[in-house]
Design a protein around this nucleic acid. Structure first.
Lengths: 222, 222
DNA sequence: CACTATAGTGAATGCTATACACATTTTAGC
DNA sequence: GCTAAAATGTGTATAGCATTCACTATAGTG
């Protein structure tokens, strides 16, 4: 129950992650090097293994952090407008998704880019973190739906397990999935630089797509 | 002007790329290893440098091939229906985009996933290859527009340079960009496994999104 | 047929992750 | 306050990686 040493330990683990994020920003997610981290920390590389079992374990920790960070950005965006301004809240969440991504391209690449060579994410740890983002959206949509402000066309069946476990309606699940794919398409192309020269004003373009999406979902302007 | 030796050389280069693609399918794009390729070819790794200046040079070649392969898949999809069945041709191109991606996930990751650590693509070589896919779409949309079958809302300015260089109209450029972001969002999430459990029937879901897109663009059923 | 350009080899360099044995420091129990 | 245990950190060793270079064997060309 001692916390003197445990606290120190946590601090070191955070230091490692912090430097790792820094390096990712420079050299990219897959270029993460324990040696480089140790060098910057002024410590022997073998010592890092006291804090993370392997490079993969560190990557997993970074992935989970990244999912949480993005979800937090979305939550903040969704919480800013008044409670009953559903469209503004949705817009806030979607804007948070993109803002976080363009501000943290390497961490975005880590969670949504190509999988790292030998690495396989331990689903039991990363899945819950990944689900948090969707939860933010579901929350807003649920409330809008309860107020009768949502009229999305859901002409396709959705996974029963998803509906059961999240408790959302068919239309909420459908709109969530459609919304995510659209939003994500723009964001991932923008972050990886594939929209350069194709679009004039990336922010305006994104906003327009979000507006279209909400119109389609029957979410009226507040 | 001899071609005896040159042909042999080209054949070997293709062999290398072939094995590289094979390995990418197993270990992922960033996990590509010259050593592993040489081992499988039963040759000394240093010998590979006679054919590609570096690992990056090989990667560049694979990227260009991948862009062309996907564009070819789209072209084939667009060419299958009758010339004046514009909606079917668009659908064919979009279906080709996704089909190629799910059939070649590693190569898809190579061109649209997170950038490889130290690697920077030589834009002068990869850009033209990357643009080919969009050209396929532009071609169909141009013809549909000329026939008065396209009514896309283009409420945003598009890059003048793009319009000038491709010769497409504002609405075609706009619909192309919107379409790509949507399509790509679904495909990239599907290929990287992020839609598992979120969507019941991935193909039906994709088709529905494509249909929505074309309806929005004013492309009538043929 | 003889010459030469090329293909291919093996060794060397300097990265990387990881494992292990050892030394040092810090904490906990008495 | 002292001692035993636990945790931290180091140095070394192994194995895999990309890349360079000097060298040899060979195949294509004139």
């Amino acid at each position: 129950m001692t916390t003197r040493r445990a606290a120190q330990r946590d601090r070191t683990r955070d230091d490692i992650k912090h430097i790792a994020r820094q390096q990712m920003a420079e050299v990219g997610a897959a270029g993460l090097s324990l040696n480089a981290i140790a060098r910057q920390m002024g410590v022997a590389v073998s010592g890092l293994y006291r804090y993370y079992d392997s490079r993969d374990a560190l990557v997993t920790a970074l992935i989970i952090d990244a999912f949480h960070a993005q979800a937090a950005a979305m939550q903040a965006g969704a919480d800013a407008p008044p409670r009953n301004a559903y469209q503004a809240r949705m817009m806030g969440a979607m804007w948070g998704y993109r803002s976080w991504a363009v501000a943290h391209p390497a961490e975005f690449a880590l969670i949504y880019g190509s999988p790292i060579p030998g690495y396989v994410a331990p689903a039991d740890q990363t899945r819950p973190a990944a689900a948090r983002a969707m939860t933010v959206v579901y929350e807003v949509l649920n409330e809008a739906e309860a107020m009768g402000k949502l009229h999305a066309p859901a002409d396709l069946p959705m996974p029963p397990k998803l509906l059961r476990e999240t408790g959302v309606s068919l239309q909420v699940a459908y709109l969530g999935a459609v919304g995510w794919t659209r939003i994500h398409g723009h964001v991932t192309l923008e972050v990886f630089g594939h929209l350069d020269g194709l679009v004039t004003d990336l922010e305006a373009f994104y906003r327009a797509e979000c507006a279209t999406l909400m119109r389609e979902g029957g979410l009226q302007p507040d």
